[in-house]
Design a protein around this nucleic acid. Structure first.
Lengths: 312, 312
DNA sequence: TCGCACGATGCTCTGAAGGTATTGATGTCT
DNA sequence: AGACATCAATACCTTCAGAGCATCGTGCGA
């Protein structure tokens, strides 16, 4: 049982289209005798007569004309498979498992997906909402390709890049005395006030930002919440003051006033004191494939547009 | 630019599934070195790295795992193409262009299609309603494979076979004196009565049957219609008497009475005087493929069932 | 009736693909 | 830490599938 060969199918297509062995052979850049033999082999391999040939004429049998259609399909499938493999290697096609944190990255996901769908329509993004720690684990296990999370990370196995920076705001209830103060606030402006801060483990990043800002003041932390939205709701209820990223102002919680803060010194060397809240993209060190590079580029592009929109 | 070979794809599938060149080679009944070379050739032909291999381990790249899926598809398509070609050759799959005459064969088409769909689900029947002459032309031009028509035919280019015989009935209005006569009628019973006959060219077969039946009587033909249904409507309106095939009684024209006739002698040698109305299947002489044979068998089977139903 | 067009067949030879032996690199076990 | 085992890659040789050339057989047209 000799198997069917692609060459045989190629030969068959030529003969079926020309209905003439000589011309078909010419088209295939070969001579007629081996072409006849290839067709014979194909017919025995398929187990059916595909071409009815007298000494003077060639015609397709019904089995042959059906097989011709299928032959086209096979070659198209092969061509597409090759082209698709190339696109995947070049990063213009493929699948990306993208992790994100609910409260921080969710705002850029919509524009990101739109932008990717426009530029890289063959790239499929599968979203995974996880806390930073979960994203790190996912990347190490190969479940995620890219994460959008808050520092710090284990830089021995992960690479990261800042994709967005934004200012830290104080948020106070509209009825609060601070609501009408002019100019940026310093820690001393919060002296004696109740502060809504964040969970030291579950929301470590914002907890540390808050602590860093308050370090030289004399305020007191009265709550440790896990979600920024929770903090804002508590502030609206008059429970105290909270520090939130600038983009939180677009969450639309009513009855709140957002106040600029003095620059926050003491971050890592590359940080921007005016925009201390950083969102990082993270991935497995050494696994920055062309596809990830493309997606990362779109993430930064979208995040930058988002930041600009916040400035205006 | 060496083209992709099926052997290369086969090798790739084995390696991709085993993730081990040695085991994959064993599965392919070959040794490891040529397998390595086949994979290399495939990768250069595709233009992408499909397998990431260190000296100790083999892993699929993302391009490779996508190509693996496509590889399965290609092999499935090939297998199906081969199987389909065999089925078409054996006659258990394919397409049949079937001609039929509106008034005569239409009653068996429904059961025929049901029966074919049950036994030969991969056979597609395309119906063409044509008069006998149109069917003959269609068969000669290759537009039709099989026809259901009335004799005579040009037997030098067509083969034919009787698929159904049925009695000829006289149909009279319920108010007519003949409606109450007992026993089969002879031509003398119609003496002096107005007869509805058929168009000598367009409905030649029934015209000749009518003339043959009346040849020794003294009735007069007052109409030449083209359709059996037309004749029956005229009879119901009291315009005269008509001769119709037995199956016409199932057309459901109200106010009619069907009378048996004496046997009709003088047909061709094989004819049955009690059932002189014949339906023939016709096809291009020498073109009785297995598929046509199957379909023809179903036609006869269904027509026989139909006849039996009429007898009861 | 002859000749020609065209597919099939026989024979030879080349080159692609397979096999054996070996290398080189990388984990693993003691 | 060193000896060993494992596994893919490479080198070299061998074989057979497939290509080309020459020829045959047979219908169709002049």
């Amino acid at each position: 049982m000799a198997p069917v060969t692609l060459d045989q199918v190629r030969c068959f297509i030529a003969v079926a289209e020309e209905l003439h062995f000589g011309r078909a052979a010419e088209r295939l850049s070969m001579t007629q005798p081996p072409l006849s033999r290839q067709i014979q082999k194909l017919e025995t391999a398929v187990g059916a007569t595909l071409l009815e040939r007298s000494n003077r004429t060639v015609a397709l049998t019904s089995a042959g004309s059906e097989f011709l259609e299928d032959s086209y399909r096979i070659f198209n499938a092969l061509d597409q498979a090759v082209a698709h493999a190339r696109r995947v290697e070049s990063g213009s096609a493929g699948t990306v498992h993208l992790g994100f944190t609910a409260t921080s990255a969710i705002r850029i996901l919509g524009p990101l997906l739109v932008s990717l769908d426009k530029d890289l329509p063959d790239v499929q993004v599968i979203l995974h909402e996880r806390v930073t720690g979960g994203q790190v684990d996912g990347i190490r296990r190969g479940e995620l390709d890219l994460g959008l999370a808050r520092p710090p990370f284990d830089t021995t196995v992960l690479s990261s890049r800042v994709v967005a920076r934004e200012p830290l705001y104080a948020v106070v209830s509209a009825a609060h005395p601070l609501a009408t103060v002019e100019g940026p606030l310093g820690p001393e402006d919060l002296d004696g006030l109740p502060i809504i801060s964040y969970h030291p483990v579950q929301a470590r990043y914002f907890h540390e930002l808050t602590v860093r800002f308050l370090v030289n003041g004399h305020s007191r932390i009265v709550q440790h919440v896990q979600q920024i939205l929770t903090a804002m709701v508590l502030v609206a209820a008059g429970e105290g003051v909270a520090l939130v990223p600038a983009s939180a102002s677009t969450l639309g919680v009513p009855g709140l006033v957002y106040k600029r803060l003095n620059d926050l010194e003491g971050g890592h060397p590359d940080s921007d004191p005016a925009r201390p809240v950083e969102l990082h993209a993270i991935w497995a060190r050494g696994e920055l494939t062309p596809l990830l590079r493309h997606v990362l580029h779109h993430v930064q592009e979208v995040a930058t547009r988002h930041d600009d929109a916040l400035k205006v």
